[in-house]
Design a binder for these strands. Structure first.
Lengths: 331, 331
DNA sequence: TTGTAAGCGTTATCAA
DNA sequence: TTGATAACGCTTACAA
């Protein structure tokens, strides 16, 4: 910067003004001289210094539990589009549902003074999250709310969506409906289970505890649970899988066992899959407004940065059932 | 930091030494006092300042053209695992194959003084890339080499893999084989086309130019081209699709036209899809070692940072054909 | 082993 | 409209 100043015959302060946002405080001829000098010298402002001066960076962190999950990449897309529009860059960080990696990610983002963080948390790092807020880093919870920490959040009405999916199965005549659940400590998993239960209650159907499973949000969990369910003396005639990855596991297990879908078993999944229509058979799902979730999350973040004292806002979006071929009347 | 120093009764320099890497220069009791003071005060080092001092950050940028593509998320996983192990964070940036967004991404990473950049480039930003190298930012090309700029790179033997896929079709008796190509200016697309041509040449089969299409790496391109191909007087009996997303478009078009796969048309795709085995029929593909590409890219970056003058290294991995159900003998 | 002080590249304040 | 200068929070000679 000093070099540019020397070449343009002005002070560094003027160079700064000319090259940063304050261009209107600089006379036209000086502006021109500075820009030319910068170009000739191949000068590039150092954001590191700029940010350090400002005390914050133009970065949003998006902490997700699985980059490989289309759900999160769609969210990332939405968030990135909004962030970019407002001059922020999006840093994606993958935790693999591992609290330690999540803690590391958060540490980096806080240390790097991210302007804001969007997080689908494992809910094991309450303190780190609390600290980030205390340090003035804006925080938005995505998909899962944060236990005991009221923050802006964007989520889907999980209970309602699950209720819709299971009611669809009940309407088709199914009464032995299994649920491939998520981790017990995941908010989303619990809410979806509640929707499953409510649908049963409303139809005056008893829930057989044997058909209620609990695991991870991974394909392997869907695979293992479905195998167990099929080995039952009185196996389910329908399966509701609470996560897109577990759904894939379910389908694999059914195929492996030679079960025809939906003749032998109906399947409805929570959250869509890019190739859902091309599967054999096309998969019935509850679709979540993933892109919109990302958009909303980034917008909440920006609002929070602009108005740090604004009241906490909890956005609740709704999912909708997409009936394709994997659900049918009970045999 | 000054507060911590005051509380621990030492100088800021000592605090710095105690809390950063130079712990061995500090006596045990002082070390303890400093750490306690830091904890009590909730002190978090400001990486912004640290990096500015160091002139570089502990960040790797990964610039990809499509976060929604499982190919890139798998690469990201590999790169992130290696980066993390070496104390770097991975910043993902999505360009949507848009040169302007790519330029912006690069600008941010250079300005942010990323320690290194891994990029699957559109090849429209040669100057920005050149500059990043000139500024000392390590650079590794992923998937696609950079025109006229020798850099470390990780890629797949596209021609060989395409050759294998098309030869497989030829062996099944097909002679009218269409290729759903990528953008003309994408290195990868050209190489895969060459593999397609070589397979024909070796089998003494003529290539019908009508069957050679060219488009984008998007689902819509596969859809549109396949529709056109099916409308031909003498349509192909097999289709080789050079990208996983276009392959999905191909399958959609075939389903829409009521074509049975592989009875009416065989399909082989380049690059695997997570649900490939569950599709109807299961999809035959050339699989790329995606995770390993990410690992290698990050390793090349680290090597380059450690040894800036090391000779350029171009890593070439090989794909392998996975035969599933979408290819069969000519009707 | 510890402290003093200079400096990293910016921007903001104040004065001219 | 411009310039001199003091921060921002940290690390690292150099000295003690």
């Amino acid at each position: 910067m000093a070099d540019v100043a020397a070449r343009a015959g002005v002070s560094v302060a003027t160079v700064s003004r000319a090259l940063s946002g304050e261009g209107r405080l600089v006379s036209a001829p000086v502006m021109e001289r500075v820009q030319e000098a910068a170009r000739e010298l191949g000068y590039h402002p150092n954001n590191l210094a700029r940010n350090m001066r400002a005390g914050t960076s133009r970065i949003f962190g998006l902490v997700i539990s699985d980059v490989g999950n289309p759900f999160f990449t769609a969210v990332a897309r939405g968030a990135e589009d909004v962030a970019h529009r407002h001059g922020y860059s999006l840093v994606l960080s993958n935790t693999d549902e591992n609290p330690e990696r999540e803690a590391t990610s958060l540490g980096v983002m806080i240390a790097e003074r991210a302007a804001g963080i969007m997080i689908a948390t494992t809910n094991e790092n309450g303190e780190a999250l609390r600290r980030s807020i205390a340090m003035g880093t804006a925080l938005v919870a995505i998909d899962r709310r944060i236990h005991g920490l009221p923050t802006d959040s964007v989520a889907v009405d999980n209970e309602g969506a699950a209720h819709e999916a299971v009611s669809h199965l009940i309407r088709l005549g199914h009464s032995r409906i299994a649920i491939i659940g998520g981790p017990r400590d995941a908010h989303t998993a619990r809410e979806r289970l509640r929707g499953y239960e409510r649908a049963h209650r409303e139809a005056r159907l008893a829930v057989d505890p044997v058909l209620v499973t609990e695991g991870t949000f991974r394909e392997t969990a869907g695979l293992a649970h479905t195998r167990e369910l099929l080995a039952l003396a009185d196996p389910p005639t329908a399966i509701f899988s609470v996560n897109n990855l577990t759904t894939i596991g379910v389908l694999r297990a059914l195929r492996e066992a030679g079960c025809r879908v939906p003749r032998d078993v109906s399947v409805v999944g929570f959250d869509d899959i890019p190739t859902a229509e091309l599967l054999d058979p096309p998969l019935t799902v509850v679709r979540q407004p993933t892109y919109r979730m990302g958009v909303q999350a980034a917008e909440l973040l920006i609002r929070r940065i602009l108005e740090p004292a604004a009241p906490v806002q909890e956005v609740l979006l709704t999912g909708n059932l997409v009936v394709r071929g994997s659900t049918g009347p009970r045999a």
